[in-house]
């Protein structure tokens, strides 16, 4: 689903006007602004759907507090879909 939009660079974090500055509000912003069709391919409830791993600066978001992690300037957030083919 991210075939077209492989990466988005945000020049100024405050421009996104995230309510809490955490991953939870980033996901909400993505849902409202970037996902035009079929948000269920990416989201489930307020989090990502099963099978998507969230990486913050090349580390599993589970190590960083998941939805509650407060975004910092220069952070690199990556959503990867797990692959099953072989």
């Amino acid at each position: 689903m991210w075939v077209e939009r492989r990466s988005s660079r945000v020049s100024d974090l405050s421009k996104l006007e995230l309510s809490h500055g955490d991953i939870r509000s980033l996901l909400k912003w993505i849902k409202q602004n970037l996902l035009k069709e079929r948000p269920e391919l990416f989201m489930q409830g307020e989090s990502v759907r099963p099978g998507i791993l969230v990486l913050i600066n090349d580390a599993d978001w589970e190590l960083m507090g998941e939805l509650d992690y407060k975004l910092q300037d220069q952070d690199n957030v990556l959503f990867i879909s797990t692959l099953h083919g072989g």
């Binding site: 759907r49 099963p50 099978g51 998507i52 791993l53 599993d60 879909s81 099953h84 083919g85 072989g86």
Partner: peptide
Amino acid sequence: CLFPKPPPPETVTNCADGGV
């Protein structure tokens, strides 16, 4: 531990559909 829940089947792409 990494994937406690399986992905929804409609989000899984195989090699025939996605190519490799």
